[in-house]
Design a protein around this nucleic acid. Structure first.
Lengths: 267, 267
DNA sequence: CTGTTGTTTGCATGTTTTTGCACGTTTGTA
DNA sequence: TACAAACGTGCAAAAACATGCAAACAACAG
């Protein structure tokens, strides 16, 4: 079932150009060699396509592939500007833990939205989420299988929580889950601010083989009102480059694989 | 796992064209060689069919087969951009049918997104939808209670369909529902392009007291592959100002309240 | 029953489009 | 500068295409 995403073979010539354009709009750039592989044609044909698209002003050719024309490229930059550079670095690191063909459970939240933006497109991933925003984001990027968790949407959370959502998660099984972290502590585990939210996160973790917690500095060592899970249920922790060394060691000593995001270089 | 391309042999010429069109709308593309095999006719005949369909603007011929006209296949991202004045006029009229405190069931689709944008904010409305885009839109506007229908998201539709979605809808009850119309005909009722999509729309209608169909001109009098419901299940029909008078009367005579959107004045 | 009309179909014709390869040139990088 | 990767161009083979034409078939009038 994982074949559908990357394998775009058998496409009609014109259809191929449309697909290339769609991919270009979703990703901002395309690489000729990758396209040739994906569509199973020679790079010559891809270059011909790119040439025609460029002639119509739909893309700008560059050495190795093509980019979106400057005018259309700006909104993409705006989007990326929404996420701070620090969150992007975190998200990239977290996305690196994902392997091709996996099924992911992604909680609501801005950090998790950044992760969804950073997921590799051609990996045949299946993403289950309770946040319409994240679902929408992945649909726009194309190339993902998206499952939605239904139920009542909590406005403050931006996703579905509650009994109905929990029940649906229980009927699913995922390889990896990304519960949004409210607070995480080496001694006491994972915590949430809200009762229903915490129950939902717990259900997510129980439905997944492995759990990845992505935490900005302010969430490390903090606690909140409702426990989500013991630390033993967490396999991976992604922290910022600026995270305290002793804190990282504390988690590492308890069997959690700690991943440190690369430093951000501001312009 | 070749095609489940059933043996569609023995079809009348006109019937064959309809089947081709249905397949085109279901899959977004059609290959001449495959059609020739499925219908057991020469590719010449298929090309003749495609030529005629293209002449009616129902498909776009390409080397090797045919694609859906650009407007229909372009990813939702772009379609969403065309919040044309006509659609807004339709949406405003449709939103006028809603009363304070009601629970609405809103299907995916660009027209329905426009309706969601036009809903009154302070009316204490509860909106149930299968489209993350519409949910997100209402969350951003604030002041709505939003329920999400879960399940697998169909990329072409932009919302959840399938057994899981249908099951959830069956457990709900709404005052009003807005099933996206693919085609509506006074004699034959409401139709959809896709099998699963049509089943979902039917479930929506059965879960609601009243049904509102909002149809742009091109959908009036058209037919598609899968029936959603008899016309007797439709209480309200919202049409454009430019809708044909005889057509409006045809629906009115069958007990459907026809609402005509106000004229739009182009700049 | 016979002949006419109109439609649909498959086939043969020549034309157009697409494709991969060979060859020489340009571009980015060490 | 040297080198590899990416690029453009010309070319020939294959696939898909349009067109004309004749056979097959149904509907219908005489």
């Amino acid at each position: 079932m994982a074949k559908a995403a990357a394998n775009e073979s058998g496409a009609l010539p014109q259809e191929r150009q449309q697909r290339i354009l769609a991919r270009l709009r979703g990703e901002g750039r395309v690489v000729a060699a990758e396209l040739a592989l994906a569509f199973e044609v020679s790079e010559d044909s891809i270059r011909r396509d790119l040439r025609e698209l460029a002639a119509q002003g739909l893309c700008k050719r560059v050495y190795g592939g093509a980019l979106l024309p400057a005018a259309m490229h700006t909104p993409l930059k705006q989007r990326r500007a929404e996420h701070s550079a620090r969150k992007q670095a975190l998200a990239r690191k977290a996305a690196g833990l994902v392997q091709a063909g996996q099924t992911l459970l992604i909680d609501a939240g801005t950090t998790n939205a950044a992760i969804a933006s950073a997921l590799p497109r051609e990996a045949g991933l299946t993403v289950i989420t309770n946040a319409p925003h994240i679902a929408q984001l992945l649909l726009d990027r194309e190339g993902f299988e998206v499952l939605l968790i239904g139920g009542r949407i909590d406005l403050a959370i931006g996703g579905t929580v509650g009994a109905q959502a929990v029940e649906q998660v229980r009927r699913l099984r995922a390889d990896l889950c990304f519960p949004g972290a409210c607070a995480i502590d080496a001694a006491h585990g994972l915590w949430g601010f809200d009762s229903e939210e915490s129950l939902f996160k717990r259900a997510m973790i129980e439905a997944s083989d492995e759990t990845v917690v992505v935490a900005t500095d302010d969430k490390l060592g903090a606690v909140a009102a409702h426990q989500v899970a013991e630390l033993s249920r967490v396999q991976h922790l992604v922290v910022e480059h600026s995270a305290d060394r002793a804190t990282r060691a504390a988690f590492g000593n308890r069997g959690v694989a700690v991943h440190r995001a690369v430093a951000v270089q501001e312009a």
